[in-house]
């Protein structure tokens, strides 16, 4: 499984309140959430993001609230993958459960700039920066995580497993 897209680069401690402000949490509709994704730190994000694009950010991405709406908003905005040196633990768990690919790779984050074009291979963990020609190695997902992401999240994964056993 591969993804290609341009980079939106942000700093450290991007929190769930800027990913999706709580004032919009009276809905759980992915499209409605995506319409406000990142707006408090980057009001152009929503108009500029295209399917496949990637967020590259500093440590502790997704800190704060347990709202699953945060990975949902990012995924529904078209983002294929978030790359950071580390993720806040609830966000990490929620992202996988929602089928949003995330990769931990400090070296890549340091060497990738806003607007760079990347190709990410989830099977090998290779992050290739097409703009600079540099290549980085992140830990590839274990098999079951790959399957969760391919199944569009934990629920899809569980349903698929159920079908297979029936």
């Amino acid at each position: 499984m591969k993804a290609k897209g341009k980079v939106f680069k942000y700093g450290a401690n991007v929190d769930t309140d800027v990913i999706i402000p709580a004032r919009y949490l009276n809905t759980a509709e992915p499209a409605e959430l995506a319409a406000h994704c990142m707006e408090d730190i980057d009001k152009d994000f929503v108009s500029r993001v295209e399917p496949g694009d990637m967020i590259v950010a500093g440590p502790n991405f997704g800190c704060g609230s347990s709202r699953e709406h945060a990975p949902v908003a990012i995924k529904a905005s078209g983002v294929s993958c978030v790359i950071a040196p580390s993720f806040a633990r609830i966000f990490y768990r929620n992202a996988i459960n929602m089928g949003l690919a995330i990769m931990e790779c400090p070296e890549a984050v340091e060497a990738i700039s806003d607007g760079d074009k990347l190709e990410v291979d989830f099977d090998t963990g290779v992050i290739f920066n097409e703009t600079t020609g540099k290549r980085f190695q992140a830990e590839p997902f274990p098999e079951f995580i790959k399957k969760i992401i391919e199944s569009d999240g934990l629920v899809g994964y569980i349903s698929r497993k159920k079908e297979q056993t029936q």
Binding site: S66, R67, R93, N94, L154
Partner: peptide
């Protein structure tokens, strides 16, 4: 577990308590 990040409050009483997301809550 609680689908709220401040679920960790209950550690004050000597419990293990942590926040999770909605899918974890559902399951």
């Amino acid at each position: 577990i609680g689908a709220d990040s401040h679920t960790c409050t209950y550690g004050a009483l000597g419990a293990f308590a942590t926040g999770v997301g909605s899918t974890d809550l559902a399951c």
